[in-house]
Simulated scan of single mutants.
Amino acid sequence: MRISTFFGLGTAALLAAAPAHAEKGDVLVRVRALMVAPTEKSGPVTPSFPGAHVAVNNSYAPELDFTYMVTNHIGTELILATTKHHVSGRGSLDSLGRLAGTWVLPPTLTAQYHFAPQAKIRPYVGAGINYTIFYSEKSSDALDAAIGQTKVRLKDSVGYAVQAGLDFDLTSKIFANIDVKYIDIDTTARLTTGSTVNRVRVSLDPIVVGVGLGMRF
């Protein structure tokens, strides 16, 4: 009888420690590994290189994000990450390869709808706004050798963001996460070489895939 009671209490304790659902007032903190894959479209590099355009490489970085559950179903998420990207020449500038590099800081705020807040597996979708800051822009040695010392500046961007993701409880506090975002990022690059100024319009519009772990507070 005592053994039965002991195991009964043990089972109850295990059930009590089972993964808990997300609910109003919870703060979810995630650490993710990101792949940022631009789906870029570029205009010509004018006026000097009308037959040229540019391409932007993928980048990988850690990311930190915070979600506050306003209700059981509605959350707001802020993501913080920065990535470095290289810009390469195409068309008449293809032979130069890399033209420039820049760091990108794209803080993004979304409102999310969580479909099953009481479940162990919790899908969600979201939409919001992004402000992208470009910093530490620098021309490549190949570009400087070809046309002279060049100063590169990229215009900051404001755009929308959409996302879909999934949280999967591992314990009552810790969960795994996968998240996919599409972020609207448009910029104009200004290349100043002496008295000559070239510009190129680029729509970066990256797909951002994140995988990681989170903790519920």
Results as ranks from 00 to 15, higher is better:
Leu166Glu: 08
Thr187Val: 07
Ile174Leu: 11
Ile178Ser: 13
Ala176Asp: 11
Ile147Asp: 02
Asp184Phe: 04
Leu170Ala: 15
Ser157Leu: 04
Asp184Lys: 10
Tyr182Glu: 09
Lys151Leu: 07
Ile147Tyr: 08
Val152Met: 09
Ser157Phe: 02
Thr150Ser: 13
Lys173Val: 09
Arg190Ile: 09
Ala189Tyr: 11
Thr150Met: 10
Arg190Leu: 11
Ile147Ala: 05
Val162Met: 14
Gly165Tyr: 03
Lys151Arg: 09
Ile147Met: 06
Leu154Cys: 04
Val180Tyr: 10
Ile183Tyr: 00
Arg190Phe: 03
Thr171His: 07
Thr171Trp: 04
Gly165Val: 05
Val180Ile: 14
Gln149Asn: 11
Asp186Ser: 15
Leu191Pro: 00
Asp156Pro: 14
Ile147Asn: 05
Ile183Leu: 03
Leu191Val: 12
Val162Asp: 03
Ile183Ala: 01
Ser157Cys: 06
Thr188Lys: 13
Thr187Asp: 06
Asp167Met: 14
Leu154Asp: 07
Thr171Ile: 01
Lys181Gln: 14
Gln163Glu: 15
Asp184Ile: 04
Tyr160Cys: 08
Gln149Ala: 12
Gln163Met: 12
Tyr182Val: 01
Ala176Gln: 06
Ala176Ile: 06
Gly159Tyr: 12
Arg190Asn: 13
Arg190Asp: 05
Gly165Ser: 10
Asp167Glu: 13
Lys181Ser: 08
Gln163Asp: 10
Ala146Val: 03
Arg190Thr: 14
Arg190Tyr: 10
Gln149Val: 09
Ala146Trp: 01
Ile174Phe: 15
Val158Phe: 13
Ile183Trp: 02
Thr171Tyr: 04
Val158Glu: 14
Tyr160His: 06
Arg190Gly: 00
Thr171Asp: 06
Ile183Phe: 00
Ile183Thr: 06
Arg153Val: 13
Ser172Ala: 14
Gly148Asp: 12
Asp186Glu: 13
Phe168Lys: 13
Val152Phe: 06
Lys155Met: 08
Ser172Phe: 02
Ala161Met: 04
Lys181Asn: 12
Asp179Leu: 15
Phe168Thr: 12
Arg153His: 06
Thr187Asn: 04
Asn177Glu: 10
Asp156Thr: 09
Leu166Gln: 07
Ile185Val: 15
Ala146Asp: 11
Ala146Leu: 04
Lys155Leu: 07
Gly148Lys: 06
Asp184Trp: 05
Arg153Lys: 13
Asp169Gln: 04
Ile185Arg: 00
Gln149Glu: 14
Phe175Ser: 01
Lys181Trp: 09
Ile185Leu: 00
Asp169Ser: 12
Ile147His: 00
Thr187Met: 02
Tyr182Cys: 03
Thr171Ala: 09
Thr171Lys: 05
